[in-house]
Design a protein around this nucleic acid. Structure first.
Length: 596
RNA sequence: GCCCCCGUAGUUCAAUGGAUAGAACGAAAGUUUCCUAAACUUUAAAUCUGAGUUCGAUUCUCAGCGAGGGUACCA
């Protein structure tokens, strides 16, 4: 049984016996005892003070004395104000360590065949420009949360909806037609997605010129935006695309294929993947059909100009456009169609959308619309809403060229890792392939950890001028600690020291028992990360563990310890710290090296 | 206008309503005949303002100030 449960139960029993009041386990507030006080686990006794009709100190003392006497694993207690600090005997900790050591995947719940299925959508790029830093956060969060939910016993299907059609794609296509002179990735040497992105920017540049011109002729800004020849041509192109015009489709296919090749490279570089990819071009018609069905059912209405709307004012929201006056579909139409296809394809129990918080409203609406259309799972969808990545100057804007390109950033990180390794002489004597593999791991680790350690709900700032650190609370710090432990374990092996279960007659330091306590926390951390959709919980845990271990490593000898039982214990402890580092980094999608 | 988020050391991030608000970077000072110094130790440094609820508020409520996002034919 878990320590927390044992103690909670003991306290409930103590309160009942001492004061005759019934509390439930949930009422017992437990926390790790702060470092500056003696003890392992602290009970907050304020909730019981009223029932006890005594001062907080007295109540704490009485409860402390009771649980100390009745429970063998509680060996000591002390009281400070309303806080009851309990010390847990080390026999318990040693037993815990042996148990942790016996399970390779301690803390993970394997999914059974009939486990519920969670589909997680992430990435969801537009095919008009390359991926940038915002997409990196999305991809890393989506990938990590998939692993975390799998570790919590879910069957997970990772999915991606590629927004491969629509007015934005037509902009790139039109600009390429007008200004491209037949340029291809091969002739330009550019990555396919970058090439297409170049024309998206070119479109915007020319569009702005046209707007300015029309405004100088006396049109308002809104009129000019509507009447600019480029915009009219783009809208025509979208209509041509929707009615299947061969030349338009051909151009579209060609340019999208360039983009896919580019995306594949970036995904591979980031180490993310998908089980099932949907394309908007294949789902939007299903969406349109769903909207038509909604019209028939009377849940939507058509305006005089032909546009279709959902009236959400009874739900406290606005009216929402579902089909434009010209009959073309919008973002929402597509999402409805995609949802329909997904639920036809998979027995989904929970649908998760990893999408930025700028779309909170969109998903509020989507949930309502799906519900109105009769999908019983509509209201159950989870919008895993994460914050924006901002630059010190503010938001990134792809049209203004202030975005941080995903490929460039990864390359820079790996480059910095390579240089740092060389400076420190860490990779001397390694083959170039080995050195490259380690630098890649470390560079990516730094980037991923930097992004994932932040609470996903919060906006975060990234300063491109200051490179991401490799010291302190960073991925490389955690990777380094793993490599360090592995080095010790290799040396132990060379000395033919076999690591066996620990002996409970040892005398352990506080640092050592605290490390075991941290290891034993892992299952609860994995659960919390899953419940709250927060890889940051895992990241912070790993950092705490590693920080604590490095202090231990500094203060104590492992291989040079003369007492062989103690030496064995420390090796076992180290081995399991390494295991937990590796397991927790796995949940973040970060690899850890054997040496660095 | 309306709706939603956010405001913690110089900077980037932590803190289920609980003890003296934790880290990291940066700044200052130290640790290496010793298992990897990408480490360890020490110092200085913060809850936007004002009320309220509470035994107890960074956390909850209200008001103010400041920043960001959304808001009906972009995705």
């Amino acid at each position: 049984m878990k320590l927390e449960s044992i103690v909670s139960e003991a306290v409930v029993q103590a309160v009942k016996s001492l004061y005759g009041i019934d509390f439930v386990l949930k009422d017992v507030q437990l926390q790790k005892t702060k470092k500056e006080f003696e003890g392992d686990l602290t009970v907050v006794v304020f909730p019981f003070v009223k029932a006890a009709r005594k001062s907080p100190e007295e109540t704490a003392k009485e409860i402390g004395a009771y649980v100390n006497e009745k429970n063998a694993i509680i060996t000591k207690f002390n009281v400070i104000k309303g806080f009851l600090n309990l010390s847990i005997g080390q026999a318990y900790w040693v037993e815990q360590l042996n148990e942790i050591a016996s399970e390779t995947n301690y803390g993970s719940v394997a999914a059974s065949a009939d486990a519920p299925l969670m589909m997680i959508e992430y990435s969801s790029p537009n095919t008009n420009k390359p991926l940038h830093l915002g997409h990196i956060r999305n991809n890393l969060l989506g990938y990590s949360i998939s692993r975390i939910q799998a570790a919590n016993g879910w069957n997970v299907v990772k999915t991606n909806i590629v927004n491969d059609r629509g007015i934005h794609i037509c902009k790139s296509m039109l600009a390429w037609q007008l200004f491209g002179h037949g340029e291809t990735p091969e002739t330009s040497g550019l990555k396919g997605d970058s090439l297409v992105g170049k024309y998206y920017v070119a479109f915007d540049k020319e569009y702005k010129v046209q707007i300015k011109e029309l405004m100088s002729q006396g049109q308002t800004e809104d009129e000019a935006k509507k009447n600019a020849p480029l915009m009219i041509a783009t809208q025509q192109m979208l209509l041509d695309w929707e009615r299947g015009d061969v030349a338009t489709r051909h151009l579209w296919e060609m340019m999208n294929n360039w983009v896919y090749a580019g995306f594949d490279e970036t995904y591979k570089k980031l180490g993310v993947d998908f089980d099932k990819i949907y394309y908007e071009s294949q789902t939007y018609l299903v969406g349109k059909q769903q909207v038509e069905d909604g019209l028939d059912k009377g849940v939507f209405h058509r305006r005089e100009d032909g546009s279709v709307w959902a009236d959400l004012t009874p739900d406290g929201l606005d009216e929402k456009l579902l089909l434009r006056a010209d009959g073309t579909s919008v973002y929402m139409t597509q999402d409805i169609g995609t949802a329909k296809l997904r639920y036809d394809d998979f027995p989904i129990n929970k649908m998760v959308y990893v999408v930025g918080n700028e779309q909170n409203y969109h998903f509020q609406v989507l949930a309502l619309l799906l519900d109105k259309l009769g999908f019983e799972w509509g209201k159950e969808l989870v919008h895993f809403s994460y914050g924006m990545v901002e630059l010190p100057e503010g938001k990134m804007k792809s049209r203004e060229g202030t975005v941080v390109d995903a490929d460039d950033l990864v390359d820079e990180m790996v480059q910095t890792a390579t240089e740092t390794s060389q400076e420190l002489g860490k990779l001397d004597g390694y083959t170039p392939e080995q050195a490259k593999a380690i630098s890649t791991m470390v560079g990516l680790g730094a980037l991923k950890y930097f992004i994932l350690k932040v609470d996903p709900k919060k906006n975060m700032t990234f300063n491109p001028k200051e490179s991401i650190d490799f010291n302190g609370n960073t991925g490389p710090f955690i990777q380094y600690t793993h490599a360090r432990i592995k080095s010790v374990l290799r040396k132990a092996e060379e000395q033919e020291i076999r690591v066996v279960p620990a002996d409970d007659s040892l005398s352990l330091s506080e640092k050592e028992t605290y490390l075991i306590q941290l290891l034993a926390d892992y299952p609860a951390i994995v659960k919390e990360a899953g419940d709250s959709f927060s890889p940051a919980v895992i990241a912070n845990y790993a950092y705490d563990l590693v920080k604590e271990y490095n202090q231990f490593y500094h203060d104590f000898s492992i291989l040079r310890e003369e007492n062989s039982e103690l030496r064995n214990f420390r090796l076992l402890l180290s081995e399991n710290v390494a295991k937990m580092i590796k397991n927790s980094m796995y949940l973040l999608g970060i690899d850890v090296p054997e040496r660095m």
